[in-house]
Design a protein around this nucleic acid. Structure first.
Lengths: 201, 201
DNA sequence: CAGGAAACATACCTTTAGGTCGGTATTTAC
DNA sequence: GTAAATACCGACCTAAAGGTATGTTTCCTG
């Protein structure tokens, strides 16, 4: 039995890497553990040594990888921001990068799968959305406090609106053919953000 | 061999009925043709007599059922409307009905599955989104012509924005626990719609 | 009312799914 | 340095997947 050097942490990470590719591109139901371990250059023995079953693997991948990816993409950049400009710029940047298989699309795709809705997977995905909404709401609140954003704005509601919109864009413009539509969404999004502004009297 | 009376059209419709339940609740990849025919009280013989394979069944179901459902929910009601109020009222109504397994959620969920992206399924789903966007854009154009909607508004872009938002809401608030978030989205949506209005000078 | 075509049912086939099990190689702990 | 624990491989198991093949029954047509 030829066996490569034992590096449990590396192996674990390699599995999570492969899981990322599979779950992002094929969703949960569409993911085959066979293909997964094959692309990782491993076997099922390694997989089930590190993870008890498919659902748990998915849950751990979401928590350890997807959540932090979303955090890096959408939350950290807003951490100390309080202006509509920073929000707009981030949206512009992320929209230009949007592609099938990226973290934002993967999050939407997994959340859209119904089986995930009411069990542990759904909970984990919900947590990500909550955190995301929280980050946006934080910016809006700081903006209000700084007088940059109109005081009639409800941060939590607007944040929910915005996160839903972004998720919706990844879903409704998945095809590369829809790039034009995606730009249209961004354009309207920018106009919408402007309506949140507190205009100096 | 006990065989019920032959009613090919009824059988076909029964299969499409069952397909609706399966695809809506489990997505494309998550749907099992075995369960499908079982819930329809039929057998695979009947299925594959009427439909050549799974993908084609899905395509036909989308075209014959899902498309018309979306049309009835989101397009026909706007056919001759030209006011933001009618758009807002429709959104209110549909949002209150939103549930996992309904046509709007099913559309988003299927579109979110990547395998559908670039093949025939993707095309068909795209057509639905296009038509939906067209219906909303039509209302906005009529509203502009009637002087109800601000002339700086770009109907196509706003329509894309709105459709993406609705799809996003079904994805990000799938859990019944998220009803509150859904209401928040609706609230912000109504505020957003107001910003499209052409204010009388 | 015969015969052929259409509408199903039943049984089965192949592949692949998620998952298990025993063994072997490697580390770690003493 | 040896024993026990860990990491991993490879073969395998069962169930279920999508799909086929061949029936048998009903219908439609002449």
């Amino acid at each position: 039995m030829i066996q490569r050097k034992k590096q449990p942490q590396l192996t674990r990470q390699a599995i999570l890497d492969a899981a990322g590719g599979e779950f992002s591109h094929s969703g949960y139901a569409g993911t085959s553990l066979g293909r997964l371990v094959a692309t990782a250059g491993l076997t099922k023995g390694a997989l089930f040594h590190h993870f008890p079953d498919k659902r748990t693997l998915a849950k751990i991948w979401i928590e350890e990888r997807l959540a932090s990816a979303i955090e890096a993409l959408w939350m950290t950049p807003l951490e100390h921001a309080d202006s509509l400009e920073s929000l707009r710029n981030l949206c512009r940047l992320r929209f230009s990068e949007l592609a099938t298989g990226d973290a934002t699309s993967a999050l939407s795709a997994l959340a859209a799968e119904d089986p995930a809705a009411e069990d542990l997977l759904g909970r984990v995905l919900e947590k990500i959305f909550d955190a995301w909404r929280g980050a946006v709401a934080g910016l809006l609140e700081r903006g209000k406090a700084a007088g940059r954003i109109h005081r009639s704005i409800q941060p939590a509601a607007e944040a929910a609106f915005l996160v839903a919109l972004i998720a919706g864009v990844t879903v409704t413009t998945k095809s590369p053919r829809a790039a034009e539509t995606r730009r249209a969404c961004l354009s309207s999004l920018e106009d919408y953000l402007e309506t949140l502004r507190n205009l100096p009297t």
